[in-house]
Amino acid sequence: MAEQHFLEVRHLGKRFDTDHGELTVFDDVSFGLDKGEFVCIIGHSGCGKSTILNVLAGLDSPSGGEVYMAGKEVRGPSLERGVVFQNYSLLPWRSALSNVEFGVRARFPGWGKAKVREHSLRYLHMVGLKDGAEHRKPAALSGGMRQRVSIARAFATQPQLLLLDEPFGALDALTRGTIQDELLRICAETHQTVFMITHDVDEAILLADRILLMTNGPFARVAESVKVSIERPRDRTTIVHDPGYYPIRTHLVDFLVSRSRELSERDDAVRDAGHAREVRAEAMAPVEVDPAADARAEAAGLVRAQGPDPHAPPPLKAVNGN
């Protein structure tokens, strides 16, 4: 093994028995996360992203492969790995505050009532829930507010790894933007290690240090690991003016539109030819790409590279240059 990451995912695979025989959703998925890193995973529906996240959470068990966190094998759920689900998963008979307290009490069983409350309120305020909203039941809160509570609950338990399963998928664009900002700020403060599923390319670029790209299922695998070298702190409104932004965006969109399918087809062909070993070898090491750095290097040397780009940002870019 080359290097030991904080989170090590090795040769993960998931197979289901169906009426038409065995279905392999993904196979030989390997990657690592370092402490404090924010990693997003993107792929088409059905490639098994959610299953991977559930395996990391300990809620699902893989058909093959293993996951290590801080050197210990992940077996079953743990408070060290907090999860924020897409549908918030708040307990509807508890108020927002009580939902957070539920998590805090589970995490710190020795704490007194006052300390639990104070800790919970701090995290609720951090995600912007105050002025009585914290005493409302989830049904009386908007979708955005509920997801904030869910995030507060996850952060309040201070997990070593935070798993986000498309947390903003069900929110409108405006709410999504503000909560993304909150998340960005909180992660910067806490240096939280995060693994997040998203369908939104712009969201991934805004939040992530690295973006994992999965090929289409069945037999999906992590094909590329795209480094987002846009400097932090990032801002939702100005990040699009970074010279690195559009090259990354184009690279990701290209992958989703064509390469994810092409790579799957190529894998299928190789597998049909009986060279499973070959696919395996490649799958073990996702290709490292950093379109942003490439773009910067070009921008520094040659003006030419920026001209013909159809996605080129408006002239403001020059003012904002790095």
């Binding site: 809620l59 549908n87 539920f102």
Partner: peptide, 10 residues
């Protein structure tokens, strides 16, 4: 989901 919340909170 609620059972999963219980599980992830050990």
């Amino acid at each position: 989901d609620w059972v999963n919340v219980a599980r992830t909170h050990e």
